[in-house]
Simulated scan of single mutants.
Amino acid sequence: MERTGVAMTPGNIRTRKLSTAVVLGIAVAAVALAAVVVFGLGIGNWVLVVALGGVFYLAGVYVAASRVEGRRAARNRTWSALIHSACVLAILPLASVVWTLVSKGMERLDGDFFGSSMNNIGARDPEGGAYHAIVGTLEQVGIATVITVPLGVLGAIYLVEYGRGRFAAAIRFFVDVMTGIPSIVAGLFVLSFYVLIVTPWFNDGRPGFSGFAAALALSVLMLPTIVRSTEEMLRLVPGPLREGAYALGVPKWKTILRIVLPTALSGIVTGIMLAIARAAGETAPVLLVAGGGAAINFNAFENNQSSLALFVYQQAGDASRYAPARAWTAALTLVALVLILTIAAKLLARRNQLTR
């Protein structure tokens, strides 16, 4: 059988393949041709060169593979190259963000930044750090996690294992609605209810801004994420595991505690860390109900308190020439903090699974 002028025999199928050198040559030629077109016509920069080079590369690979391997193999190779290119394009923005954070955040990565606050720091002072913001972030996110994780996990267990009828359907509906609530709405809810109504009873009639109020707002944002992710993970647990436990006479509550939850633990931890990462990066709720502040405040239940996200927002809009460096270092610190917590949680969950 003949296809595109190439005899397709068993020996031919095994031997006629595009070599790696040819593929690399096509890639180099595609980028060079794109550079000549873009820079020669003056229509863009290196980003357009990469995009246009990718198009030329796909066309060149298809033509070369059609002549050597046949049209079917050429289509397969082209689609494979397109999928790999899409993967690279998806990774590039993430790599760019990481590189920008690391390169610009290293400027103030010193002991003074982590050991001092912005209290009594003027626009012309190069000193000042984010110690107060780090303390605020850890306390607010920690309190929100302690409040939200038990509620979210227990709510998901009810929906999967016990929930039936209209009440369970109503809970699922409100969880779905809460998932799309903007963060500023959560902040306004806590401001109007807790700060302006509840705290005046215990504060001589004055509203009390605090880190705890910010933690409540973050809990509103974290709860639907934890409920939804935990619910999906619990539904992935195979039914025969539950049925086997029931057949042995194990009570339902003990089956859930000893079999279902450990099986889904890795996915549950992932959902919890996603919720924590979102809460740690929120600015509007902290600004509304915690007020921010330049001084160190270890008491999350009294007085204003800042956070890393709010610190980045304030420093990015500050007129001081030293503020942008502080903002970039604070952003890098926030990302590193979330990364460390995620790795620690993953390792802890994996260790618990191995020891069972």
Rank of each mutant, 00 (worst) to 15 (best):
325 A>K: 14
8 M>L: 12
75 R>K: 03
267 G>V: 08
95 A>E: 06
132 H>F: 07
125 D>P: 01
306 S>Y: 02
275 A>I: 09
212 F>K: 02
249 G>A: 13
263 T>G: 05
19 S>Q: 14
323 A>C: 13
55 V>Q: 07
167 F>R: 14
137 T>A: 06
328 W>E: 02
138 L>Y: 14
36 V>D: 08
229 S>A: 15
93 P>F: 03
295 A>T: 13
135 V>S: 00
234 L>Y: 07
240 P>M: 12
314 Q>Y: 12
278 R>T: 05
354 L>A: 14
119 N>D: 09
138 L>T: 08
184 I>A: 04
4 T>H: 12
128 G>P: 02
66 S>C: 11
219 S>Q: 07
241 L>Q: 14
286 V>Y: 04
150 P>R: 03
211 G>C: 07
199 T>A: 06
49 V>G: 09
290 A>Y: 01
299 N>A: 15
343 I>V: 15
41 L>D: 03
253 W>E: 15
349 A>L: 13
89 L>D: 01
321 R>D: 09
152 G>M: 01
276 I>D: 00
277 A>I: 02
270 T>W: 03
31 V>C: 12
335 V>F: 08
18 L>A: 10
274 L>W: 03
79 W>Y: 09
341 L>I: 08
240 P>L: 05
308 L>M: 15
35 A>W: 11
334 L>W: 00
40 G>F: 08
2 E>W: 13
8 M>F: 12
261 L>N: 13
328 W>M: 10
311 F>S: 01
259 I>Y: 08
329 T>M: 03
40 G>L: 11
161 E>V: 03
185 V>C: 10
222 M>W: 05
353 Q>A: 15
43 I>E: 08
171 I>Y: 11
337 L>A: 08
70 G>T: 07
192 S>P: 01
255 T>E: 14
248 L>Y: 11
205 G>Q: 07
323 A>D: 04
306 S>K: 02
267 G>S: 08
134 I>Q: 05
331 A>G: 11
256 I>A: 15
304 N>R: 12
265 L>D: 07
338 V>K: 01
210 S>V: 09
233 M>Q: 15
150 P>L: 05
330 A>G: 05
302 E>I: 13
221 L>S: 09
232 E>Q: 14
28 V>S: 15
121 I>H: 05
47 V>D: 06
103 S>H: 12
73 A>C: 07
224 P>A: 01
159 L>E: 02
287 L>N: 04
151 L>T: 11
214 A>W: 01
66 S>I: 01
